[in-house]
Design a protein around this nucleic acid. Structure first.
Length: 119
DNA sequence: AGTGTGACACTGG
DNA sequence: TCCAGTGCCACAC
């Protein structure tokens, strides 16, 4: 996985979209979770929910981005496999007070944090 | 410039 | 109701 950011000819759109994702992710309240689609939609790219996850992958060096608070629409820690170990993502969520069983967030709808609704 | 990929979301059977 | 396949947009090579 290369996944290295290089500013080719200084295109702004490059990190801009990613930065938006990071910004929203950072805005996620403690003990709260959201879905890729929600963030993507907030950014204006509802169909690009996958890009949000891709952005998270690129964040693999930023501790400022709580990617563990971002899950898919099902409330499953899909990206957990991408994290360092295996239950790290789950442990982090549990540490925040979120019930996570078998990579599945309990009361996901209740803990769901919609940036569009809050912001 | 085109191709392939990707931590999703949606619709159909 | 659940499982599977397709579609989408943006980034990387």
């Amino acid at each position: 996985m290369g996944v290295k950011k290089n500013n080719t000819t200084g295109s702004q759109s490059d990190t801009n979209f990613f930065d938006r994702v990071y910004d929203v992710a950072k805005l996620i309240p403690h003990g709260r979770v959201t879905s890729y689609g929600a963030i993507a939609k907030y950014l204006g790219a509802a169909r690009s929910a996958r890009m949000v996850g891709w952005a998270m992958n690129a964040c693999g060096g930023r501790d400022d981005v709580p990617a563990h608070r971002v899950v898919n629409r099902k409330g499953i820690l899909t990206g957990k496999h991408h994290f360092q170990g295996t239950n790290l993502m789950q442990q982090l969520l549990e540490n925040e007070g979120v019930e996570v069983i078998d990579n599945q967030i309990q009361h996901f709808e209740k803990l769901f944090w919609d940036p569009m609704q809050e912001l």
